[in-house]
Design a protein around this nucleic acid. Sequence first.
DNA 1: ATATGTCATGTTGTCAGACAACATTACTTA
DNA 2: TAAGTAATGTTGTCTGACAACATGACATAT
Lengths: 246, 246
Amino acid sequence: METRYEKLERPRRLPDEIAARLTRQIDDGAIKPGDKLPTEQALANDFGVARTVVREAISQLKSDGIINSRQGVGAFVADSGTRTVFRIGEACFAKRKELAQILQLRTSNEAEAAFLAAAHRNEADLDAMNDQITIMRESLEKSGATNGERRYEAERQLYRNIARASGNGFFVDFLGMLDGRIDQSLRSVAIKNMIAVESRKEVLAEHEAVFEAIVEQDAEAARIAARTHFANAATRLISRANLADV
Amino acid sequence: METRYEKLERPRRLPDEIAARLTRQIDDGAIKPGDKLPTEQALANDFGVARTVVREAISQLKSDGIINSRQGVGAFVADSGTRTVFRIGEACFAKRKELAQILQLRTSNEAEAAFLAAAHRNEADLDAMNDQITIMRESLEKSGATNGERRYEAERQLYRNIARASGNGFFVDFLGMLDGRIDQSLRSVAIKNMIAVESRKEVLAEHEAVFEAIVEQDAEAARIAARTHFANAATRLISRANLADV
DNA sequence: ATATGTCATGTTGTCAGACAACATTACTTA
DNA sequence: TAAGTAATGTTGTCTGACAACATGACATAT
């Protein structure tokens, strides 16, 4: 019996820690839009680090549109409406309410992607989807961790294929980001779920319903089927994960 | 007559330029996931800048999950599935096809937010929405740039209020980011649109339909009404903007 | 022969100091 | 009163150094 270990996380670097603290102060309203940050030298003194470290932290915040800096003047907190990125904090995945909201966001967008895919898909798209459905079917009756992981990966690939078939690259990127974040935080839970869930046939039927609707170019049916699956998946995931009720 | 000037953009800094070039190389596939980047010193020599500048650039990419670096080893391109942020490049807003896709993404999510808002809204939410509708009505018959801008801002605020009423903070953040990016790139076009569009009454009616559905807690009607408005708005915006047909 | 310990090397992470580029303010001058 | 000028402070960039760490080669012991 080979015991599997999870990859261990590397220690946080100083610039990331400082970026996180500044971000939190801004999100909490301790520093408001328009306010001027302390000078880099002052921040370096306060945090007890070199100015280069502070600069790396500020560089990160600038690239997110959280702050703007002007040479010779200073760095200022930007309006909340000027953020250039959408990101989800690590901690959100550990809280029941916030995780439910994240999965709600995903469900909506996966449903829309399936809707669009039904209209735009070509034969190559269908083949790619069918490959994953086939893997799921073959793995259906088998047990064990390896097969659970195989079904999990097949499912992820199936919905990546659907997103791609939508013809809208922004859905691909956005859903890919959401899936990656969820995988990063909840992969082991999701795979355990795959192994344990007693109603595998019903889950497979959910995927098949989505696929068949896309084959038939029935966009509304695809949307409903995808929404059904991801809503169910969210319920299963939340009930199985070990979450805080903040 | 006071002529208005747009805020002028400040020159790009070296770390941002380097981060952009590296990102592009990765997106283009010139450097693939798993590949090791040149050492910081080598990059500094190639670009003809100091290592601190390269480090700031890499620090940005790390915070996006595009690369991972390990002390004593090097920096490596991460798998595309491990990106921690969703961002939209500036250039996308100038291309017809990509802008259409961005607006499609927004339409879908605004519709879902309205759907959720119909179920979760409280009286304070409705008041906030009604304030904006009132502003729109009062401004309806008036002309001029100022009134166009007023209607534009009222509309933005209305849908921010709806997103907030959804009770899901991630919709608020995501839609806020999309709206901010669109505003940044197309504000003047959108306002001109507000001033010029001959069918103001019909547009106002679209907003009122969304609002009334949310008042009546008719979630499906709210979704359809919001989808209708944003789809129409997308068509208007694209037809008026000066876009490349890449 | 295999496993363990040690060291040299190269890379990233952090520190310190310096100067350039720039914006603001106060001051000077026409 | 208006325009020009200098002083000051901040961010942007450069340079050099050392610390922290990982890797691979080598030596040693069992």
